[in-house]
Amino acid sequence: MNRNLAAGERVVGAEVLHGGITAEVLKLTAGTADGVTRDLVLRSFTDRFCEVQAEDWLEREAGALGLLSGTGVPAPGLVAVDPTGAHGEYPSLLMTHLAGRVVLDAEGLETRIPLLARQLVAIHAVRPAEQPRGYVALTTAETVVVPRGADAAVWAAAIDVIRRPAPPRRGRFLHRDFHPGNVLFDVPPSGSKEARIVGVVDWAAASWGPADLDVAHCATNLALLHGPAWGLRFAEAYEEAGGLLAEAASERLYWQVRDALACSEEVRSVAQPWREAGRVELTTRAVEERLDAYVTALLETLG
């Protein structure tokens, strides 16, 4: 670790950061002999289950952080990356620490959603010199897990939506995991109306694909956290911020439903990190119920 620090620096403190699902994240304090310190973040894939994909994720994240430097998108700065764990115990990435905190509670949500939308429009405006790898679909019609107590007919109709080929769409630079849990806010004592985004983290899935896919993912997460109406609201806010979505309602529905159904496979894994990161009271059963209600609301948008 010390080999990646500036001359005269050494690690003088470490703190576990909660809220991650696939990686262990530590906030490290590096200091010099004369007392100058700075904070860094070490992201390590300690789970053997994730080790196979760790190299790809870390290389992708390192590439994204390098690309975003100087763009105005508030992403961490890359310090060092060890995608195979050749120089440490685990595959890891070291980056600068960003101030701010994750905000997941309902208070001030109506103010934060436009901020999230404008930030995502800015991300999609990035024009990389070299096109990143294409997005990876996170579910298929055969792998969808229908929540307990859900309307079987509604879910069958939703699954039929994603059996169709993906609509052709112009590609954009995607975060691919953009949602409130990966956005850091500065919320001053004066209240949420003065909140601002100071960081966007977790770029391990950065890729190339339709803007609708990023919008759908954030919308799904908002629906699971706060209810279906907020998921639907985010897509509106994205367009109000100048973002362009598919013109045909059926094409928009395809991406929205695809992302919602992808969450059905991991609904049990999202509640705990949200509870840790945002101190929200959210049970797995509540997430299942909100997912079911969101899928129903999406299909109702077509009448």
Score class of each variant (00 low, 15 high):
residue 187 V to C: 10
residue 131 Q to P: 11
residue 196 R to L: 11
residue 53 Q to D: 13
residue 23 A to W: 07
residue 274 W to N: 03
residue 271 A to G: 08
residue 97 H to V: 01
residue 244 L to I: 14
residue 229 A to F: 06
residue 43 R to D: 10
residue 143 T to P: 00
residue 175 H to S: 06
residue 54 A to R: 02
residue 293 A to Q: 12
residue 11 V to E: 15
residue 157 A to H: 06
residue 233 R to Q: 11
residue 194 E to P: 14
residue 98 L to C: 00
residue 258 R to C: 11
residue 273 P to Q: 10
residue 115 L to R: 06
residue 216 A to V: 13
residue 104 L to V: 02
residue 219 A to Q: 04
residue 202 D to G: 03
residue 41 V to S: 11
residue 247 E to K: 05
residue 110 E to H: 15
residue 2 N to Q: 14
residue 178 F to K: 07
residue 138 L to F: 13
residue 73 V to Y: 05
residue 18 H to C: 15
residue 46 T to Y: 03
residue 157 A to Y: 00
residue 147 P to N: 12
residue 146 V to K: 12
residue 104 L to M: 02
residue 53 Q to I: 11
residue 216 A to W: 07
residue 21 I to N: 09
residue 99 A to N: 10
residue 207 S to I: 01
residue 270 V to N: 01
residue 195 A to I: 12
residue 294 Y to M: 02
residue 254 Y to N: 00
residue 20 G to D: 07
residue 59 E to Y: 15
residue 71 T to Y: 07
residue 191 G to L: 15
residue 228 P to G: 04
residue 165 P to I: 00
residue 188 P to W: 08
residue 123 I to T: 00
residue 243 G to V: 09
residue 184 L to W: 05
residue 202 D to F: 02
residue 293 A to S: 14
residue 206 A to I: 07
residue 200 V to N: 00
residue 69 S to Q: 15
residue 119 Q to D: 08
residue 115 L to M: 05
residue 78 L to N: 04
residue 60 R to P: 09
residue 28 L to M: 10
residue 270 V to G: 04
residue 32 T to W: 09
residue 295 V to S: 05
residue 169 R to D: 11
residue 78 L to S: 10
residue 191 G to A: 07
residue 255 W to I: 02
residue 51 E to T: 09
residue 165 P to C: 03
residue 133 R to M: 09
residue 236 E to M: 07
residue 72 G to Y: 08
residue 13 G to D: 12
residue 51 E to W: 05
residue 115 L to C: 03
residue 168 P to R: 01
residue 179 H to Q: 13
residue 20 G to F: 04
residue 91 P to W: 09
residue 298 L to N: 05
residue 10 R to W: 14
residue 142 E to N: 04
residue 195 A to P: 03
residue 103 V to Y: 08
residue 241 A to H: 06
residue 75 A to G: 00
residue 29 T to H: 05
residue 233 R to K: 07
residue 90 Y to L: 02
residue 4 N to E: 09
residue 126 V to T: 02
residue 149 G to N: 02
residue 28 L to H: 06
residue 170 R to P: 15
residue 257 V to I: 09
residue 7 A to L: 10
residue 31 G to A: 12
residue 137 A to V: 14
residue 53 Q to N: 11
residue 142 E to W: 02
residue 190 S to M: 12
residue 235 A to M: 01
residue 299 L to R: 00
residue 238 Y to V: 09
residue 240 E to Y: 04
residue 100 G to E: 03
residue 39 D to L: 03
residue 198 V to W: 02
residue 68 L to G: 00
residue 186 D to V: 05
residue 123 I to M: 04
